[in-house]
Amino acid sequence: MKLIECPRDAMQGLTDFIPTATKIDYLNALLRVGFDTLDFGSFVSPKAIPQLRDTAEVLAGLDLSATQTKLLAIVANLRGAETAASYPEIKYLGFPLSVSETFQRRNTNQSTPEALADVAAMHELCERNGKVLVVYLSMGFGNPYGDAWSPEIVTDFTQQLAAMGVRVVALSDTVGASTAATITPLFSALIPAFPGIEFGAHLHTTPSTWHEKVAAAYQAGCRRFDGALGGYGGCPMAADELTGNMATENLLDFAAQAGVELGLNLEALGEASALNHAIFR
């Protein structure tokens, strides 16, 4: 079971700017915990996401000397991908490809065909630079816009990604629309159908529904989960009222119940949690 910690997702919708030094301290604490991957920042327009306008400065302050955690940066277009790919410290580039045309335009100002063309170019860019592209299938469990959604549509998107050679695809809830009844059949169908792809679950949730969502994905074969300490965050491009990220604490509880040993540094986790409370409360 891989845990991807997503402080970028937690921070991006906050109105008050978090000082760069505070971000660096928090991310360095998270790096000491031992998560598989840290979704630490994004190379997008500072007008779109002003909170993360200092991602390059934050990256320069990270201590990667004693961690196995890999860095992931979100990008919204090919120019951002080229910037992210220029940093040797970054392993993964993440791009939100939406199953909903409406949300694709809201999130990256692109049509679906334009976004797919960018994905192909980003994948080639990553291959040339020793990076790995992670495609987040946003609105992967439905959308609030009335755009067409079905398991077959999600499968068609995945087929196109597989044809490009994309190796990591995270089904993303975005607005908390998923239920066990939608999560289970999607992962159960996709995982055996595309053995060359590692599937992840980026689930947004309410406190009362987290367990059934994680259990549905895990029992269907998913082993890659995104979370954020405290369950903070949500996509500011999706709605005015944000549905929080899957709380990392809940993922840790689930792993313990399932008998999965994650090998995390619990002392460092406590330090990171204290910093989290100071930032978000």
Rank of each mutant, 00 (worst) to 15 (best):
M1D: 04
M1K: 05
E5N: 12
E5T: 13
P7D: 10
M11Y: 06
Q12M: 09
T15V: 13
F17A: 15
I18K: 00
P19N: 07
T20C: 12
A21Y: 00
A21N: 03
A21C: 00
D25T: 15
D25L: 09
A29E: 09
A29W: 03
A29K: 13
F35W: 14
F35Q: 10
D36F: 11
L38N: 06
L38M: 15
D39R: 03
F40M: 11
G41Q: 09
V44P: 12
S45L: 06
K47V: 02
I49L: 14
T55P: 01
A56P: 02
L62H: 05
T67Y: 00
Q68I: 08
Q68K: 14
V75C: 13
E82L: 09
A84K: 02
S86K: 07
Y87F: 15
I90L: 09
L97V: 09
S98K: 05
S98L: 01
F103V: 11
Q104L: 05
N109S: 13
T112R: 13
A117L: 07
M122R: 01
E124C: 01
L125N: 07
R128F: 09
G130K: 07
K131A: 04
V132T: 15
L133Q: 10
V135K: 07
V135R: 02
S138T: 15
P144M: 07
D147P: 05
S150A: 10
E152H: 04
F157R: 01
Q159F: 01
L161C: 11
V166G: 08
R167C: 00
A170W: 14
D173Q: 10
T174R: 00
V175D: 07
T179P: 01
I183D: 02
P185Y: 09
P185C: 14
L186Y: 03
L186W: 02
F187H: 09
L190K: 08
I191W: 04
P192Q: 11
F194S: 00
F199A: 04
G200K: 07
H202K: 03
T206A: 13
P207A: 08
T209D: 15
W210K: 10
E212Q: 14
V214T: 08
A215V: 15
A216P: 04
C222Y: 05
G227C: 05
L229A: 03
G231F: 10
Y232P: 07
G233C: 11
P236I: 11
P236L: 06
M237H: 14
A239H: 14
A239V: 08
N245I: 13
M246P: 04
N250V: 11
N250E: 15
F254Q: 12
A256T: 07
A258N: 05
V260Y: 12
E261C: 01
E261K: 04
N265L: 08
A268K: 08
G270T: 01
S273Q: 14
A274S: 14
H277G: 00
A278D: 13
R281A: 13
R281E: 14
